[in-house]
Design a protein around this nucleic acid. Structure first.
Lengths: 206, 206
DNA sequence: CATATTTTGTACCGTTTCGCATTAAATTCT
DNA sequence: AGAATTTAATGCGAAACGGTACAAAATATG
């Protein structure tokens, strides 16, 4: 179901790769400040091709957000491997995030969603929807792991999995913002590490 | 030192009030999407007056950020009254923040800095500087209170004031992002409350 | 080979953008 | 009163914006 030969002239570009290039532009500049000229130059598609393949600028932006969200959820699920201790799981989540967040040219890019969708969320309902759904899904995935940790005794019985998950997410949100604000890798790693300790309990529980 | 009579025609507007109106525009739309026409309409100043009083759009934006930062620091210092328990201090900080963050028209506005400066931080060095300084100062103020709490025994001896402060800030950052993503007041209050519990230790320490 | 269909490239359209030039108005200083 | 100085208002202007019309190119179908 990949290559049913289409009728007209075949595309001269890889839509997936173009989307990745567009995403980088949005990541650095944000939605509003990214011009179609910027996007056209980065993807090496002229505007009509861009428009034909992805729709208008907002459609294109939402596409990149959705792809980013999906990638993030995949990485999260992998990091939360339940055969590893909860501590390791969280540490892996944060380490993976920082590897992405700190990949900036001039200044660190942080998280695409938190860094660029948050501004637009107030006035663009579709952006707000994607952002909200992304945060919720992220929380939900961590919550599942927390619930497991309570059942297995990794966390004390009284612990609230949902709230612990949201606080674990909160540390991520903070890393995302601080990366973009210019904090050093060392600072961010220290925060991540402290977050793990606080959430998992500073005292080792058997 | 307020009214040394200046030479020319006096201003027909209150710069402070105009700045507040401009701030609201930036708060909803972000820096890039806020046009001078928007700002001019909101402040009821024509563009040349805006330009004359505050400089260009970026100067104006930086001015609003700086004012917001100052207001935030004042509110923080007040909330952290050391004659109250640390728990109450943090609860007051979060409650004060939510009162500001949830004041949106269509969707909640969140935090001006985290919601609108974070996008611009990558490409606008001056914005990144203000954002970074704001976050650091905020951390620092909480850290002072944490240090006090360790000395007074409110927190255990081994506690790390700096890291606890950064995690307390992390909860704020998360509230800021989630407010703008559309989370309900109840959700945000629950997160704030859980954050207080986690940071102060779920077990009451005499 | 002719036709239909899709993509590509150029060029353009109307609008909006930011910033300023210019002139009129209001106040102080001499 | 008159000069000096600052603010206010109108309007312009060059550039950038998002989006598209149109024709050429490339492929499949009949």
């Amino acid at each position: 179901m990949k290559d049913e030969k289409k009728r007209g002239r075949p595309r001269g570009f890889d839509a997936k790769a173009a989307l990745a290039k567009a995403r980088d532009v949005f990541w650095d500049r944000g939605f509003a400040a990214a011009s179609l000229d910027n996007l056209s130059a980065a993807t090496k598609l002229n505007r009509p091709s861009l428009y034909g393949a992805f729709g208008d600028k907002e459609d294109l932006y939402l596409d990149t957000l959705e792809g980013y969200r999906q990638d993030g959820m995949d990485a999260l699920a992998e990091a939360l491997d339940p055969s590893l201790p909860l501590r390791d799981n969280l540490a892996r989540v944060y380490a993976g995030a920082l590897a992405v967040y700190l990949h900036g040219e001039t200044a660190a890019r942080g998280c695409l969603l938190i860094g660029t969708a948050t501004v637009e969320a107030v006035e663009h309902e579709r952006v707000r929807e994607v952002l909200g759904r992304s945060l919720n899904d992220f929380d939900g995935e961590i919550e599942k792991r927390m619930r497991l940790a309570v059942e297995s005794g990794e966390l004390p019985q009284g612990a609230d999995p949902q709230m612990l998950a949201m606080l674990a997410s909160a540390v991520m949100h903070s890393l995302a913002v601080r990366a973009r604000a210019g904090d050093s890798r060392e600072t961010l790693e220290a925060i991540a590490s402290s977050g793990v300790e606080l959430i998992c309990g500073s005292v080792q529980r058997s």
